[in-house]
Design a protein around this nucleic acid. Structure first.
Length: 278
DNA sequence: CTTGGTTCCTGCGTGC
DNA sequence: TGCACGCAGGAACCAA
């Protein structure tokens, strides 16, 4: 499940690998992921273009092309960008890009929640329209208690569910929302509007902290793992998770005797410590 | 506007 | 061994 730290890790790897390179070949699999403006249109935009640099916004990867257009990739929950070769297309491979120096990148996504889109001049096509409404990146200084407080204040929804809203905390998904709430000492089922200013402040800080730490450890690769590095390697933040995936195990907060509980919130598996999260 | 539910999709773990 | 089944979840979309 690629979230901000996983996508940022991939962005850095890709930036080092393909910046300055020219695209000479584009191929598609038989089962397409949602794509704009369709396979033929994407190929037309990409062929002959040079990648200036690779950027990121929330969970979106942006290949900035010399043409001024962007190739935008969203990995959904099982999408991977992998170093590849010129052998036959594999089972869930949806797109393959070959560069002038022979390097090949493949977009593989078993569950096909991923998205592939071309954009121009900041206009975002349907499948990725949400990117336009995202707020500041939680790892940037502009993301603070004032911003978060304004979005949580007066809201009746559970704070965990609001953290999954990309307008509130872009780049955050199920793993890092649970981890941030644990670090902030806030129960995920609290009504967002009931959080006191110090709790909002702790949460804003915790979000940035846990996401930056996730990046430092190259993201979280779970056992079933949709997330892999570009070369197939694994991240290592899973070893440092404090609540996610740790149901029935001891809380990792120093001195806390709690046992991690799991409950479904808004259709999503949620992990928390009933003792140190209030 | 807010809120919560539904939908898409496949691999994997579980129970019989 | 095999099969039905439930679960995982990002985010667009829809209904009230």
């Amino acid at each position: 499940m690629p979230e901000l730290p996983e996508v940022e890790t991939i962005r850095r790897l890709l930036g080092a690998q393909v910046a300055g390179k020219r695209i000479v070949s584009v191929r598609f699999g038989t089962k397409l992921v949602a794509m704009h403006p369709g396979p033929a249109g994407v190929r037309r935009e990409l062929l002959g273009a040079t990648v200036r640099e690779v950027g990121r916004r929330g969970k979106y990867i942006l290949f900035h092309l010399s043409s001024g257009r962007d190739l935008v990739l969203h990995l959904g929950m099982s999408g991977q960008v992998r170093n590849s070769d010129r052998s036959a297309m594999q089972k869930h491979e949806h797109m393959r890009i070959e560069f002038s120096d022979g390097q090949v990148l493949s977009f593989v996504d078993a569950r096909r929640f991923g998205r592939v889109c071309m954009t121009e001049g900041g206009v975002l096509p349907r499948p990725i329209s949400g990117m336009a409404r995202m707020g500041p990146e939680p790892i940037e200084p502009g993301y603070n208690a004032a911003y978060l407080g304004a979005l949580l204040g007066g809201r009746k929804a559970r704070v965990k569910n609001l953290l999954l809203d990309q307008r509130v905390a872009c780049g955050v998904g199920n793993i890092y929302s649970d981890e941030a709430l644990h670090r902030a000492g806030v129960r995920p089922d609290r009504r967002a509007g009931s959080l006191k200013p110090p709790e909002v402040a702790r949460l804003a800080t915790a979000l940035g902290d846990v996401l930056r730490e996730g990046i430092r450890w190259c993201g979280t690769t779970m056992k079933d793992g949709g997330y892999r590095l570009v070369d197939g390697g694994a991240g290592s933040f899973q070893k440092r998770l404090r609540v996610y995936g740790r149901e029935g195990q001891r809380c990792r907060r120093r001195g806390c005797e709690g046992v991690v509980r799991r409950q479904t919130l808004g259709g999503r598996s949620t992990h928390f410590c009933p003792v140190c999260q209030k």
